[in-house]
Design a protein around this nucleic acid. Structure first.
Lengths: 147, 147
DNA sequence: GCTTGACCTCAAGTTGACTTGAAGTGGCAG
DNA sequence: CTGCCACTTCAAGTCAACTTGAGGTCAAGC
C-alpha cells in the first residue's frame, strides 16, 4: 500500500497507463522509482493527477500546467494566473450564454425561416463580426470517453 | 456588385481564402460559378458563413453543420438539434462556472498551501472524479488569430 | 527452469480544422 | 500581345494530446 504500480494508478485515477507515461515524458508527473523496468508511484501522484485534470478542465495546456508545477517552489501556485484564467472563463461563459440564448431562440422562433427572424439575424451578425471567436479559450468537439 | 470573388468574400467575412476553398471541398459552401478558374460567389455566401461561424461557436463540427444544411429542405433547421445543443451548452456553462469559482477561490485562499485548503481539496476531488470531463463539448486551447 | 503476460521503449498514427507550398492557369492592365 | 500576379489544384504539413503497434524485458507463479 502506498506504492502503486502504473495499472493501479490508472485504475484509481481513471487516467490510462499510456497517458501516464506520456505525462511523465512531458514532465508533468514523475515516478518515485522502478522495480525492474516498471514504474512505481507514490500516493501523491493521485493529487497530482487531480490537479492536472483540474488544470485541463480550466483550459490550461499541458505546457502551462507543467510550468506551474516547476514554478511551484515559488510561494504559492500563481494566484495571478489563476485569477486571469478565472476571468477568461467568465468571458467564455458570457459567449456561451449568448450562444445558448441564440440557439434557444432559433429553436423556438415562429418565423417562417430563421433568416427572416430579426433576432436570429442579429445573432448571426454578431457571429459574423467575430463576437463568438475564442479569446484564448474555445469550444471543442471530440471527447475521448467510451473507448 | 453582388458577385464576389474569393478575396472579396475573405475580406468581408474575415474567413481566409484557403478556408473558403476548404469549406467548399467539405460541402459547406458553394460558388455560383467560375470566371475562368476563379470562383465567383453570390452575396448569400456571407450569411452562410455567418451561420457556419455561429455553428462552430456553438460547438457543432463541420460535419454536423454540413448535415444541417443538406437537411435544410426539411421544414426548418432542426429545432430539436438546436435545443439539444442549447442544453449541452447549459451544462458546459455550469461546469465552467464551477471551475471559475474554484480558480477564484484558489487565487484568494489564505491557506499556506492550496493542498491544505479544504475548499480546494473539494474541487480537486471533483476534478479527480471526472466532474469536469466534457460531455461532448469541452475546452480547447490554441486559437489561430494573429497572422 | 520456464512460461506468462503485464510492463517497457520508441516510432508512428489519429483527429479536426485548417494552413502551406509547389507548380500551373488565365484575366486584365499596359 | 505580353507579363504579372491573383487565383487555381493537390499533396503534405501543423497542432495538441494522446493512442497504437511492434518488438523487447523481466517478476512471479507453477
Amino acid at each position: 500500500m502506498s506504492v502503486l504500480d502504473i495499472s493501479e494508478v490508472a485504475r484509481r485515477s481513471g487516467v490510462p497507463a499510456s497517458t501516464l507515461r506520456y505525462y511523465e515524458e512531458r514532465g508533468l508527473i514523475a515516478s518515485i522509482g522502478r522495480r525492474g523496468l516498471r514504474r512505481l508511484f507514490g500516493p501523491a501522484i493521485l493529487d497530482r493527477l487531480a490537479l492536472i485534470s483540474l488544470g485541463r478542465a480550466a483550459g490550461f495546456s499541458l505546457d502551462e500546467i507543467a510550468a506551474m508545477f516547476t514554478a511551484e517552489h515559488a510561494p504559492q501556485f500563481d494566484r495571478t494566473a489563476l485569477s486571469a484564467k478565472a476571468n477568461e472563463i467568465d468571458h467564455t461563459i458570457a459567449r456561451l450564454a449568448a450562444m445558448r440564448d441564440g440557439l434557444r431562440h432559433a429553436a423556438a422562433c415562429r418565423a417562417p425561416s430563421h433568416m427572416e427572424c430579426p433576432t436570429f439575424r442579429r445573432i448571426l451578425k454578431a457571429a459574423a463580426s467575430g463576437a463568438f471567436e475564442p479569446p484564448t479559450l474555445a469550444l471543442r468537439r471530440g471527447g475521448r470517453s467510451a473507448r
